[in-house]
Amino acid sequence: MSSSETATTTTTTTSNKAPAAPEARAAEIVREYGPFDGVECVGGVTHDGQRVWAAGGARLFAFDPESGERTRTLDRAADAGTAFDGKHLYQIAEQRIDKIDPATGDVLRSIPAPGHGSDSGLTWAEGSLWVGQYRDRKIHQIDPETGAVVRTIESNRFVTGVTWVDGELWHGTWEGDESDIRRIDPASGAVLERLQMPQGAGVSGLEYDGAGLFYAGGGGSGKVRAVRRPRAGAPAA
């Protein structure tokens, strides 16, 4: 059921006045999945503890990260970020975010997306949804019940996927032919760490699996890539 009410927005904006980004290290891609039949573009990506879910435009689908085989397909609009809260999926579909029962595919609730169609990444953390705004170079923390914006963090690159890792905020970027996965200070927006993707390997969605890997949507390649999270304190290559 779609919400017909306009969410009340209370926004705290943190500007990025940080120094230049640190030197990037090469992203370690450990596996590629896809392209998948019938999927021309992969948007959002999430992980439910067992399966990887990916937004494939007209469908939301899941695959086994061990075998690479598709295990579920839900006929739900899925053109951007995807998230999992431990029980339900959340999916950006144009100007709304749908809360979906993964067992049945039923949409349980819809809330307005803060970018009104310009939203990109999506993740769940600390009882909130976090939404990337692509060309606005922002990440919004929003109330999952109303869509109200609670807080805004600014980046200095186009924001695609968003994920939290052990209290660290990471997001994907994609401008032109360059894409990276970066860790930023959630208070200031300062860039703390960067993983540079190979030329042509864009990041359209991002999620951490809790076991050492980021899963990154590959946009028009139709692929999902598993990228190793660097060990804390590991030097740049």
Rank of each mutant, 00 (worst) to 15 (best):
R96Y: 12
Q50W: 06
G86Q: 03
T82P: 04
C41Y: 11
A55D: 09
G57W: 10
A62K: 09
A93W: 07
A54T: 07
W53C: 05
F84K: 04
S67A: 11
D64G: 01
G86P: 02
W53T: 04
K87C: 07
Q50M: 08
A58G: 04
W53N: 07
H47D: 00
V45F: 00
V45D: 00
D48E: 00
A58Y: 12
H88C: 09
A77W: 13
I92K: 09
L60A: 04
F61C: 09
A58R: 14
D75N: 10
L74R: 01
A83L: 05
R70W: 00
H88S: 12
T73Y: 00
D98E: 14
S67D: 02
A80E: 14
E69V: 11
G49V: 02
Q95F: 11
G86L: 09
D79A: 05
A80S: 15
T82K: 02
A77E: 14
I92N: 10
D98W: 11
D64A: 13
R96P: 01
R70N: 11
E66S: 15
H88N: 15
G44R: 14
V52G: 01
Q95Y: 06
L89F: 12
G81S: 06
A62W: 00
T46I: 08
D98L: 03
L89V: 11
F63V: 09
V42E: 00
K99Q: 15
D79P: 04
R96C: 01
V45A: 05
R70L: 03
T71I: 10
E66Y: 01
A54V: 09
E40A: 09
D79C: 08
R72Y: 02
A77P: 06
W53S: 02
G44H: 05
D75H: 14
G43E: 10
E40H: 13
I97L: 02
E40P: 02
D98T: 04
G43A: 11
E69T: 12
A58T: 07
G56Y: 14
D98A: 13
G44Q: 03
E69I: 09
E66G: 08
